[in-house]
Amino acid sequence: MYTIAVTVGGHDFEVTIKQTSPNGDRFAAQVDGIEHDVIVPDPGQQGPNEWMIVGDRPYEILFDEDLKTLRVYSGKHHIKVRDTRSAITRPESGDGRVKAPIPGLIARVLVEKGQQVSADDALIVLEAMKMENEIRAPRSGVVTSIRVKPGDSVVRNTVLVEVS
């Protein structure tokens, strides 16, 4: 039995959830005193679940690794999920390391070490799939290091720039 606090679409919900089948494909979720059956088909699969039935409503879903967003037919929704038994919540954004979200080739470096940047300022232009992709600052701060130069090939998650 878990009690999970979820914020989505500007609403706060408290969901009490328990597994109701031995193989983990059925749950009962209680919200505001009303119980909803949840079916998670194909529970033994590798990789993330891609669909679920809540009550009698099927949802095809896509979510990110950190459970910060959830995509269904109505669009992409930002979510906050917290186990009410633990008081710890993660900070909104991690450290100031800006990593390559995709592999590619560094086309241009748009900032210099020591430069003041604001959140969303373009830092690096990364070329992939015949396109120029701008990598932007996650927050305001000072560029403390630049780890790449034009022409470098980078793999996913390579640290490009640090902003502190």
Binding site: Y2, I4, V6, V8, G9, G10, H11, F13, V15, I17, Q19, G24, F27, A29, V31, H36, V38, V40, P43, N49, M52, V54, G55, R57, Y59, I61, F63, L67, L70, V72, S74, G75, K76, H77, I79, V81, D83
Partner: peptide, 25 residues
């Protein structure tokens, strides 16, 4: 990004999905 509001029942279902994903994880 859309700004279409959904009925609260839709967000409740999303909360249940998110909670289930959390538990499965």
């Amino acid at each position: 990004f859309g700004d279409r509001r959904q009925p609260i029942e839709h967000y409740r279902d999303l909360a249940i999905i998110a909670a289930t994903l959390y538990v499965k994880r």
